[in-house]
């Protein structure tokens, strides 16, 4: 069967995933700050309601109404917790935590309630909720609107965590996350919203826990996450001109982790670089390095190299922010150290 595809942005792909799942399943609801926008403003649903500050959920309210696209007060603890309660009692809520940096005000509801309920209840409950949240530097949004922080969530038992890098993966992973019976953190990189790519029409699922080889190569494995996949691909392209063929593994899921994909690529290339925009201490990058050392030690012909953000908050000034974000040049330098 031929499935028609067309070019969509990452933003449109996410919007389409939400739309298709809300059509398919009446228990799917959307909640968050301004996800519809302009609550109580007459006719705004048909005439340009925000759909989130960056328009990701635009026009969903006009199809599904305010009963299913719920603008919340700026009370993250209340509405994230309400998503937990709604999930335990029969809905499939998709809650939007506008910027991941805001997790500090609602972490108890994510970590002590949503993530642990099933376990503490002896498996009697399930919590099929999704928390969509924006990550990443590059917008000049500085310290409290620019972090990645997904490693915090990957650390927590009871949560799943995914971070798509392309429109195709964003749509398939979000549909999978909504249908998943566990709580899933869905990390959207704000610098990718305008990126375009081929996206099939209709619904499809990308399994949570499966990485994707975005580029084949035999000389070095570059494992990357979210926007860093594109940095890695750019580095791989330039390295290829010099005869070094990098294999780029897009992790896609941070928890669970596709250990087999990392290890089998490593078995082939025998060299590993990890590219991660998150802070380096106790990070997913460090976790991948530990995996390579623990289970892939015999494959390794060289030290594992981590290309990460520094151990600082995200700075404001363009010169500082550019310094913060990993670049193709830094990836190339890391590869050259071990190839």
């Amino acid at each position: 069967m031929v499935v028609a595809t067309r070019v969509l942005s990452y933003r449109q792909a996410i919007n389409e995933a939400l739309r298709l799942e809300m059509r398919r399943d009446p228990t799917v609801i959307l909640m968050g700050e301004d996800v519809a926008g302009g609550a109580t403003v007459q006719h705004i649903e048909q005439e340009g309601a925000w759909g989130g500050p960056l328009g990701v959920t635009k026009s969903l309210v006009s199809e599904f109404g305010r009963q299913r696209v719920l603008d919340t007060p700026i009370s993250e603890a209340a509405f994230i917790g309400a998503a937990v309660g709604a999930a335990v009692t029969g809905l499939r809520p998709v809650a939007e935590l506008m910027f991941v940096d805001f997790f500090g005000v609602c972490m108890d509801q994510i970590f002590n309630q949503g993530a642990k309920l099933r376990y503490m209840f002896g498996g009697k409950a399930k919590v099929p909720m999704v928390i969509r949240t924006m990550i990443g530097a590059g917008f000049g949004a500085a310290g409290q609107h620019s972090g990645c922080h997904y490693s915090v969530f990957a650390h927590m038992p009871g949560l799943k965590a995914v971070a798509p890098a392309t429109p195709y993966d964003a749509k398939g992973l979000l549909i999978a996350a909504i249908r998943d019976d566990d709580p899933v953190m869905f990390f959207e990189h704000k610098m990718l919203y305008d990126m375009t790519g081929e996206v099939p029409e209709g619904d499809y699922v990308i399994p949570i826990g499966k990485a994707d080889i975005k580029r084949q190569g035999n000389d070095v494995t570059i494992v990357a996450i979210s926007r860093m996949v594109h940095i890695a691909l750019e580095a791989a392209k330039r390295l290829s001109a010099d005869g070094i063929e990098a294999e780029v593994v897009d992790l896609r899921s941070l928890s669970p982790l596709d250990e087999d994909a990392v290890l089998s690529s490593l078995a082939k290339t025998r060299r590993l670089v990890v590219v991660d925009e998150d802070n380096p201490r106790c990070s997913v990058a460090a976790d991948i390095a530990a995996l390579a050392v623990d289970k892939g030690f015999d494959y390794l012909d060289a030290p594992v190299k981590l290309v990460t953000a520094p151990h600082t908050p995200v700075p404001f000034s363009p010169s500082l922010e550019q310094y913060y974000i990993p670049t193709p040049e830094r990836v190339i330098a890391a590869v050259r150290e071990i190839v």
């Binding site: 209340a78 917790g81 309400a82 937990v84 309660g85 709604a86 009692t89 002590n112």
Partner: peptide
Amino acid sequence: IVGGGPPIACGAGLMAKTL
């Protein structure tokens, strides 16, 4: 967690209202 329950109760209420 002291104060852990109130948001969850809202969620159960939201389920009832939505359905």
